[in-house]
Design a protein around this nucleic acid. Structure first.
Length: 218
DNA sequence: GGTGGGATTAGCT
DNA sequence: GCTAATCCCACCA
């Protein structure tokens, strides 16, 4: 199997698949499809402190080289290298110097795309999350990209992790719900594209005050 | 080799 | 509603 990843993370994806983790084929599809289908799935991080997890309730699609807001827009750079590697890899970047954002790489090697996980609903390890976030209210604990990474202890060292075979993974969860879409949040480029997806009437979606007004049914 | 700014958040007023 | 916190990349010289 050809290895498309940088040396530091190379062949991470050749490990045995994690039990319950969504298969690599799940991510090897159109970015918008993956963004929609990640809703309702369970994001899990197993650390030495214990397991913490949550249901994904909000995502955004970033469409690679055709998307001015995507970090791979300019093509292949050190930063964007992961985008051009295997699907199912975690892309973690630091934002505003303070917050980490977690993305899942989509599309086959050579094609760039990713899905930003913007919010989860806490499930397992809630006390761990309280400790990491230094907060003790479940509402507001994980309803934003920087909040959920802190709650699950996802940081720069997780960049390049394989969501199929590492301790950071996403598993299936059969559940029915309605999906809404809206413009993406907080970006200045291509800000009017409807690439944000979230579960209707879920309390753990971010920015629920003003943004849901502009949302549309799928 | 320097620098402008960003896929955010919490804690103010 | 406003703003500070604070890192690292991409871009320009």
């Amino acid at each position: 199997m050809k290895c498309y990843l940088p040396i530091s993370t190379s062949c991470e994806h050749n490990k045995l698949p994690k039990q319950d983790a969504l298969p690599r084929e799940f991510y090897n599809r159109d970015t918008k499809t993956v963004a929609k289908e990640l809703l309702g799935k369970i994001l899990v991080h197993e650390t030495s402190d214990g397991i913490s997890s949550g249901k994904i309730v909000e995502t955004e699609a970033y469409l690679g080289q055709i998307d001015p807001a995507c970090h791979a827009y300019a093509g292949y750079t050190n930063r964007s290298a992961l985008f051009f590697g295997s699907p199912g890899i975690a892309y973690v970047f630091i934002n505003y110097g303070i917050h980490y954002c977690l993305n899942a790489i989509t599309l086959p090697p050579g094609k760039a795309g990713c899905v930003l996980i913007r919010a989860i609903e806490p499930l397992e390890g809630i006390n761990l999350m309280f400790k990491r976030r230094k907060r003790h209210e479940i509402l507001g604990l994980t309803n934003g990209p920087g909040k959920l990474t802190k709650a699950l202890d996802i940081n720069k060292s997780c960049n390049g992790y394989d969501l199929v075979s590492s301790n950071l993974y996403i598993k299936d969860n059969n559940e029915k719900f309605k999906i809404l879409k809206s413009k993406r949040i907080g970006i200045t480029k291509a800000s009017n594209w409807y690439l944000r997806y979230f579960i209707k009437n879920n309390n753990f979606v971010s920015g629920s005050k003003s943004i849901n007004n502009e949302s549309k049914e799928l």
